[in-house]
Design a protein around this nucleic acid. Structure first.
Lengths: 356, 356
DNA sequence: ATGAAAGCGCTAACAA
DNA sequence: TTGTTAGCGCTTTCAT
């Protein structure tokens, strides 16, 4: 015990191409050519080199290779946390699309901390990532704008690309791509679904003032209310933020204060999960007493009690689209804005209000 | 001026330490010393260099740095898929613990394909990862054994470490660490919970013959049956494998064939989710008509209908433990075997059988 | 205190 | 067809 942390006892060196060359009785240049395969090398020597490499269990040093130019393409996805079902799906989409193209994919988690986000992007710059994908809504303040403008400029300066998933570009002219869902339309649609069922007193649970994604959903919610002739005063937005715990607590408190509503639009499915639990704890039933809808249609939303009616946002496709679009056309990659469609998934958490 | 090549066209090249040095009016050696900070450099020159670096938005080339020795420590986690709640939690644990130590963490998804697993490990060798963590149960055949023996030997040869999370070491002498849960004990405990409630006809849903994790759970299930004096013939194992879809279909089929059971032990929580749905579809109720227990206690298990009684496996802690242990003591890192504790979480999916 | 020079492992000219 | 020679960007002796 008591060794220097992190350092291996024996500094055993990796097998280099030089040893392979020696064993095969050729120069390193020839060995390199035989190994890479894209240069004319007679079969006899090629097999000899390949054999030597196999015998020695040689793997090329990616750093040396990167240094000289032919580095492996690397993409990076940055999310709040990988345990969020929605983010996990986006990350899986990015990873899948990247893998399909032979790219390496690195996943970074920031825990929502801008500081860690900056460090991670910096790190990716050092590692020579050619594609950085930032995922998730943010509060769009000046700090955010200058941060992202800097990322974009720095990444572009070294030929890398930046894509913003579900968050806005601070300025249409910065070299960044944005791919996102139409949050407002989605929220308008689910709220409309509730309205069509006869609900009039609907609360939005999970606002997060300043956060672009949530603000848009709130806007959609309000627009739907207006379209159906419901006075704005009849609406109510509870700004509890996202997450199951937040939804649970906020819903419990709201129920203690009033029961003057018949339906709730949750900021996302996790908030809905918490709300569902709080409603049950209060002795009410969904959808008989109150209807609930969520957002995102995470994989387990249909296993909630009751199965959740929600807005399907094809998260994996968002991830795939991000890399696909970023890699498509270098010249079009700037200022581009792509919006992916969403749709409602009707399950069993919505019914007509009592007496309707 | 002072640039070696015309920088008139696309700003594709990264800023190098050389440009920083020139701008600060020092040699690259001095710039390097000032930047790294661990060498005696007068404050005046240091600030000059730092300023130049900041002005140029310089970031060191990680590849060049790695090549010369002082590379960034990198850890890699390999899972089937990041969208599995359990794997996501393990990955988050690894990433958190790695980040705490200033390590970079790469997440790889194999989709369960050994071929992709091999490619990914190879890739990590090329990138110089110092720690590779393979997560999840596997079918332990000869191919697996030789594959892992090779990983272990190759990684160790270059001073890197291999840790197996929830899967066995093919041979206690290979240089690999294993960290896992006691699957048998966990399954024995939940099954015992069911038996104590009075159940005698209990089926295990989600066997996967050859898979080490599932085989152990089945063994625990059988052991519990035996301990409670239930004849082995009264037990039944449905080998439908893992995943919600598998659990849904297998449960539906089983229900069509027989209703001679009062409880089901699911291979994991996702299987339980599918089973719950199938049971409801058949017009039966949980836990009144049939009790159900899961495995892993994924974050949304308490939102199932009804909230699921299951075995809590601290997944994030598994990930953290993997890196902590691997980095602890170089000399003890071989042949070590660590087992993390689990416990039952009682919720509402279990009741006494009718007439008990 | 600082600069010149020697590589790290690899690929890509350029010769032979 | 092959070997020799330059570097890629950086850190680190070894001089100064």
């Amino acid at each position: 015990m008591g060794n220097t942390m992190g350092d291996t006892g024996q500094p055993r060196r990796r097998v280099t191409i030089r040893e392979v060359a020696e064993r095969a009785g050729v120069s390193v240049a020839t060995a390199s050519r035989a190994l890479s395969g894209n240069h004319p090398v007679p079969t006899s020597t090629r097999t000899r080199v390949l054999r030597a490499a196999r015998d020695l269990d040689y793997v090329a040093n990616a750093h040396a290779r990167a240094l000289v130019g032919g580095g492996r393409k690397m993409a990076a996805v940055v999310v709040r946390q990988v345990t969020s079902p929605f983010y996990a799906q986006v990350a899986e989409g990015v990873e899948a699309e990247a893998a399909d193209r032979g790219w390496l994919c690195v996943v970074g988690a920031t825990g929502g901390d801008p500081q860690r986000e900056m460090e991670f992007v910096q790190l990716m710059r050092e590692e020579g990532a050619r594609l950085v994908i930032l995922v998730g809504g943010v509060v769009e303040d000046d700090a955010y704008r200058s941060r992202v403008a800097h990322y974009a400029q720095a990444l572009a300066a070294s030929g890398a690309r930046l894509v913003l998933c579900g968050r806005p570009a601070p300025d249409p002219d910065i070299p960044a791509l944005v791919v996102e869902f139409d949050n407002e339309a989605g929220a308008r649609a689910v709220t409309g679904h509730l309205l069509s069922a006869g609900h009039r007193r609907i609360v939005f649970l999970g606002g997060l003032p300043g956060n672009t994604a949530l603000d848009a959903r709130v806007a959609g919610y309000r627009a739907a209310l207006a379209e159906h002739g419901v006075p704005a005063a009849a609406g109510r937005v509870v700004d509890c933020g996202l997450g199951r715990a937040a939804g649970l607590r906020a819903m419990a408190e709201l129920l203690k204060e009033t029961r003057e509503f018949t339906a709730v639009v949750a900021g996302d499915d996790m908030v809905a999960a918490g709300a569902l639990r709080a409603i049950a704890d209060a002795g009410l039933r969904v959808p008989e007493d109150v209807s609930v809808v969520g957002y995102n249609d995470i994989p387990l939303a249909e296993d909630f009690n009751p199965p959740l009616t929600t807005v399907r946002t094809p998260a994996e496709e968002l991830g795939r689209a991000a890399v696909r679009i970023a890699l498509r056309d270098p010249e079009q990659a700037s200022g581009n804005h792509h919006v992916l469609g969403t749709h409602i998934v009707v399950r069993r958490s919505v019914a007509s209000p009592r007496g309707a």
